[in-house]
Protein backbone atom coordinates (compact mmCIF):
# COMPACT_ATOMS: atom_id res chain seq x y z
CA UNK A 1 0.00 0.00 0.00
CA UNK A 2 2.78 2.41 0.95
CA UNK A 3 4.46 1.57 -2.31
CA UNK A 4 1.36 2.67 -4.17
CA UNK A 5 1.20 5.95 -2.30
CA UNK A 6 4.86 6.70 -2.95
CA UNK A 7 4.44 5.75 -6.58
CA UNK A 8 1.41 8.02 -6.78
CA UNK A 9 3.32 10.95 -5.29
CA UNK A 10 6.22 10.47 -7.62
CA UNK A 11 3.94 10.05 -10.62
CA UNK A 12 2.57 13.51 -10.13
CA UNK A 13 6.01 14.84 -11.04
CA UNK A 14 6.44 12.38 -13.88
CA UNK A 15 9.87 11.48 -12.52
CA UNK A 16 10.41 8.28 -10.59
CA UNK A 17 13.31 6.14 -9.56
CA UNK A 18 12.47 2.57 -8.65
CA UNK A 19 13.04 -0.82 -10.20
CA UNK A 20 10.50 -1.46 -12.97
CA UNK A 21 8.03 -4.17 -11.89
CA UNK A 22 9.08 -7.36 -13.59
CA UNK A 23 6.87 -9.57 -15.75
CA UNK A 24 7.09 -12.41 -18.28
CA UNK A 25 7.65 -11.49 -21.90
CA UNK A 26 5.66 -13.29 -24.58
CA UNK A 27 8.15 -12.65 -27.40
CA UNK A 28 11.13 -15.03 -27.00
CA UNK A 29 13.16 -12.74 -29.26
CA UNK A 30 13.18 -10.19 -26.43
CA UNK A 31 13.87 -12.60 -23.58
CA UNK A 32 11.75 -14.35 -21.00
CA UNK A 33 11.43 -11.57 -18.40
CA UNK A 34 11.42 -7.76 -18.60
CA UNK A 35 14.62 -7.83 -16.51
CA UNK A 36 16.31 -9.61 -19.45
CA UNK A 37 16.10 -6.30 -21.31
CA UNK A 38 18.64 -4.69 -18.95
CA UNK A 39 21.22 -2.96 -21.06
CA UNK A 40 18.51 -1.55 -23.29
CA UNK A 41 16.30 1.48 -22.75
CA UNK A 42 12.70 0.31 -22.67
CA UNK A 43 9.68 2.37 -23.71
CA UNK A 44 6.78 0.44 -22.15
CA UNK A 45 3.38 1.50 -23.50
CA UNK A 46 -0.11 0.41 -22.46
CA UNK A 47 -2.92 0.67 -25.02
CA UNK A 48 -6.31 -0.64 -26.09
CA UNK A 49 -8.29 -0.65 -29.33
CA UNK A 50 -11.10 1.45 -27.82
CA UNK A 51 -8.76 4.20 -26.64
CA UNK A 52 -8.93 7.00 -29.21
CA UNK A 53 -5.62 8.77 -28.43
CA UNK A 54 -3.85 5.41 -28.80
CA UNK A 55 -4.16 5.70 -32.60
CA UNK A 56 -1.90 8.75 -32.48
CA UNK A 57 0.51 7.17 -30.05
CA UNK A 58 0.98 4.28 -32.55
CA UNK A 59 2.13 6.69 -35.26
CA UNK A 60 4.50 8.25 -32.78
CA UNK A 61 5.92 4.95 -31.52
CA UNK A 62 6.59 3.83 -35.09
CA UNK A 63 8.63 7.01 -35.52
CA UNK A 64 10.46 6.40 -32.24
CA UNK A 65 11.27 2.86 -33.34
CA UNK A 66 12.73 4.17 -36.62
CA UNK A 67 14.74 6.90 -34.89
CA UNK A 68 16.08 5.16 -31.78
CA UNK A 69 15.69 1.43 -32.41
CA UNK A 70 19.26 1.17 -33.63
CA UNK A 71 20.54 3.10 -30.62
CA UNK A 72 19.23 0.64 -28.05
CA UNK A 73 15.59 1.63 -27.51
CA UNK A 74 13.10 -1.23 -27.20
CA UNK A 75 9.43 -0.31 -27.58
CA UNK A 76 7.04 -2.76 -25.98
CA UNK A 77 3.33 -1.99 -26.27
CA UNK A 78 1.08 -3.94 -23.92
CA UNK A 79 -2.48 -4.40 -25.17
CA UNK A 80 -5.23 -4.40 -22.56
CA UNK A 81 -8.27 -5.32 -24.65
CA UNK A 82 -10.51 -7.83 -22.90
CA UNK A 83 -11.38 -9.23 -26.33
CA UNK A 84 -8.16 -9.95 -28.28
CA UNK A 85 -9.92 -9.93 -31.68
CA UNK A 86 -10.61 -6.20 -31.22
CA UNK A 87 -6.88 -5.66 -30.68
CA UNK A 88 -6.09 -7.64 -33.85
CA UNK A 89 -8.53 -5.50 -35.86
CA UNK A 90 -6.84 -2.37 -34.50
CA UNK A 91 -3.41 -3.70 -35.51
CA UNK A 92 -4.72 -4.33 -39.03
CA UNK A 93 -5.68 -0.67 -39.32
CA UNK A 94 -2.64 0.69 -37.47
CA UNK A 95 0.36 -1.54 -38.21
CA UNK A 96 3.09 -1.47 -35.57
CA UNK A 97 6.84 -1.76 -36.22
CA UNK A 98 7.50 -2.41 -32.53
CA UNK A 99 6.84 -5.26 -30.08
CA UNK A 100 3.29 -6.03 -28.97
CA UNK A 101 2.29 -8.14 -25.99
CA UNK A 102 -1.24 -9.03 -24.87
CA UNK A 103 -2.43 -8.68 -21.28
CA UNK A 104 -6.22 -9.22 -21.46
CA UNK A 105 -6.46 -9.76 -17.69
CA UNK A 106 -4.66 -6.48 -16.97
CA UNK A 107 -2.09 -8.20 -14.72
CA UNK A 108 0.86 -6.13 -15.93
CA UNK A 109 -1.26 -2.95 -15.89
CA UNK A 110 -2.15 -3.77 -12.27
CA UNK A 111 1.57 -4.07 -11.40
CA UNK A 112 2.23 -0.65 -12.90
CA UNK A 113 -0.83 0.98 -11.28
CA UNK A 114 -1.91 2.71 -14.49
CA UNK A 115 -3.68 6.01 -13.98
CA UNK A 116 -5.07 6.44 -17.47
CA UNK A 117 -5.04 5.27 -21.06
CA UNK A 118 -2.68 5.38 -22.82
CA UNK A 119 0.18 5.36 -20.31
CA UNK A 120 3.84 4.85 -21.03
CA UNK A 121 6.90 4.24 -18.88
CA UNK A 122 10.54 4.88 -19.65
CA UNK A 123 12.91 2.32 -18.14
CA UNK A 124 16.64 2.96 -18.23
CA UNK A 125 19.35 0.47 -19.14
CA UNK A 126 19.73 -0.41 -15.46
CA UNK A 127 16.08 -1.53 -15.25
CA UNK A 128 14.97 1.50 -13.23
CA UNK A 129 11.65 3.24 -13.91
CA UNK A 130 12.55 6.81 -14.74
CA UNK A 131 9.59 8.59 -16.33
CA UNK A 132 5.87 8.05 -16.66
CA UNK A 133 3.66 9.65 -19.29
CA UNK A 134 -0.05 9.62 -18.75
CA UNK A 135 -2.21 10.27 -21.79
CA UNK A 136 -0.93 11.20 -25.20
CA UNK A 137 -0.33 14.90 -25.71
CA UNK A 138 1.67 16.12 -28.70
CA UNK A 139 2.78 19.26 -26.89
CA UNK A 140 4.79 17.11 -24.48
CA UNK A 141 6.65 15.24 -27.23
CA UNK A 142 9.81 17.40 -27.20
CA UNK A 143 10.15 16.57 -23.50
CA UNK A 144 9.68 12.85 -24.17
CA UNK A 145 12.36 13.01 -26.88
CA UNK A 146 14.75 14.66 -24.48
CA UNK A 147 14.08 12.00 -21.84
CA UNK A 148 14.69 9.17 -24.30
CA UNK A 149 17.88 10.80 -25.57
CA UNK A 150 19.14 11.29 -22.03
CA UNK A 151 18.55 7.62 -21.14
CA UNK A 152 20.16 6.47 -24.39
CA UNK A 153 23.08 8.79 -23.65
CA UNK A 154 23.49 7.30 -20.19
CA UNK A 155 23.42 3.82 -21.67
CA UNK A 156 26.06 4.77 -24.23
CA UNK A 157 28.26 6.28 -21.52
CA UNK A 158 27.88 3.20 -19.32
CA UNK A 159 28.95 1.02 -22.22
CA UNK A 160 31.90 3.32 -22.89
CA UNK A 161 33.01 3.27 -19.24
CA UNK A 162 32.59 -0.49 -18.99
CA UNK A 163 34.73 -1.05 -22.05
CA UNK A 164 37.33 1.43 -20.68
CA UNK A 165 37.27 -0.46 -17.36
CA UNK A 166 37.86 -3.84 -18.98
CA UNK A 167 40.74 -2.39 -21.03
CA UNK A 168 42.48 -1.25 -17.83
Amino acid sequence: MRQIIILFCLLSFGVIAQQAPNFNLSDPALGSRLSDLKGKVVYLDFWASWCKPCRHSFTWMNQLQAAYGEQGLVILAINLDAEPELAQAFLQRHPASFHIQFDPQGNIAEQYQLLGMPSSYLIDAGGTLRHVHQGFFTDKQPVYHQQIKTLLGERYTEQLMTSMGTQK
Partner: peptide
Protein backbone atom coordinates in the same frame (compact mmCIF):
# COMPACT_ATOMS: atom_id res chain seq x y z
CA UNK B 1 29.30 13.00 -11.77
CA UNK B 2 31.46 11.64 -14.52
CA UNK B 3 28.43 9.82 -15.87
CA UNK B 4 26.47 13.04 -15.96
CA UNK B 5 29.16 14.96 -17.78
CA UNK B 6 29.73 12.19 -20.27
CA UNK B 7 26.00 11.81 -20.84
CA UNK B 8 25.72 15.47 -21.73
CA UNK B 9 28.52 15.05 -24.21
CA UNK B 10 27.26 11.82 -25.77
CA UNK B 11 23.76 13.20 -26.13
CA UNK B 12 25.07 15.66 -28.65
CA UNK B 13 27.18 12.90 -30.25
CA UNK B 14 24.12 10.74 -30.75
CA UNK B 15 22.92 13.41 -33.10
CA UNK B 16 19.51 14.61 -34.00
CA UNK B 17 17.03 11.82 -34.50
CA UNK B 18 15.20 11.36 -37.77
CA UNK B 19 11.98 12.23 -36.00
CA UNK B 20 11.00 15.85 -35.94
CA UNK B 21 11.07 17.13 -32.40
CA UNK B 22 8.34 19.61 -33.14
CA UNK B 23 5.05 18.61 -31.60
CA UNK B 24 3.43 16.70 -34.43
CA UNK B 25 -0.10 17.61 -35.33
CA UNK B 26 -2.79 15.11 -34.38
Amino acid sequence: NILGALTAATCTLLGAPAVSQEAQSV
